[in-house]
Amino acid sequence: MRLGRMALGCAVVFGVIALGCLVGPLIAGAFGVDATTIDTLRGAQPPSGAHWFGTDTLGRDLLVRVMIGGRIAILVAVVTTVIALAIGVSWGAIAAYTGGHVDNVMMRVVDALYGFPTVVLVIVVMSVFETRSLVALFALIGAISWLTMARITRGQVLALRDAEFVEAARALGVPAWRIVFRHVLPNAFGPVIVYATLAMPQVMLTEAFLSFLGLGVQAPLASWGTLVTEGSSQIVVYPWLLVCPGLAMGVTIMALNFICDGLRDALDPRTRTRRS
C-alpha cells in the first residue's frame, strides 16, 4: 500500500499538531506560561516573540489555549469516532449478514436518517435535558455519525458473506455472531478505517458547531469551537483571536481529509481522485 505524497505530508502535519497539543502546554508551563493566568494589563497583544499567537482579551497566552483546545478537540474526535465506528460497523454487518427483511428495514432507517436534521435533534436533546457534560457530548455526536460507516460495512460484508472461508466456518458450525465478528469483519476493515478518518473531521466540525452555540465544551475547558466563537466577535479589532484558532482547526481538518483521500486511493484504486 502506497500513500500519496500529499497524504503522507498531511499525516506528518497532523502528527505534529497532535503532539504539539499534547506536550506543548507542558513545555510552555516550564517557561511560566499557562492558559489560566489572567493579566489584563497584557490583554489582547498581537502575535509576538513572547506570545506566538498573541494574547486574548484577558491576557492569557493564545497559543497555549489553542493547544489545550486542540487536546479537547482531538479527544472528542477520537472518542466519538470510535463510538460511531462501533454502532455503524455492527449495524451494517448485522443488516448485511442477516439479509432479507431485516436488512431492508435497517437500511431504510439509515436512508431516512441521512436526510434528517440529526444535529438539530442533538441540540434539542442537549437543551431539554440541560446537560453540558462531555460524556453526553461524546455519546450524542457518536450516535448521529455512524450512517456512512453502516453503509460501507454493509457493502463489504455483502461481498464477503458468500466467500468460501465464511462458508467453511458455517459448515464447521461456528455461530453467526462469531462468523460476523471474527471472520468477516476483520477482512472488511480497510474501507471502514478510511471512512473513520473521514468521520473524524466531521465530528470535529460538529463539536465546534455545538460549542459555537454554547452547548459543547464548557468553560473552564475550551475547545477550538469555543475559541473561534470568542474570536469571531473580535474579528475587526483583534483579528488573530479568530485567525489563530481558526487556522489550527482548519489545518487539522484539512490534513485529516487529505489523509483519508490518500488512504482511499491506496486501498481502492477505482475511486482514485488523483494519480499518485
Binding site: G225, V228, G231, V236, P239, G250, N257, D261, R274
Partner: peptide
C-alpha cells in the same frame, strides 16, 4: 488536481470561520 485540492481545502473551513473572515 488544482480544482480538487481547492475543493478539499474548502470542505475544511467551517462556516463560523468563513463568515467572520468574509465580513472582515
Amino acid at each position: 488536481y488544482l480544482l480538487m485540492t481547492i475543493a478539499l481545502v474548502g470542505i475544511s473551513i467551517p462556516s463560523f470561520v468563513m463568515g467572520p473572515l468574509l465580513i472582515a
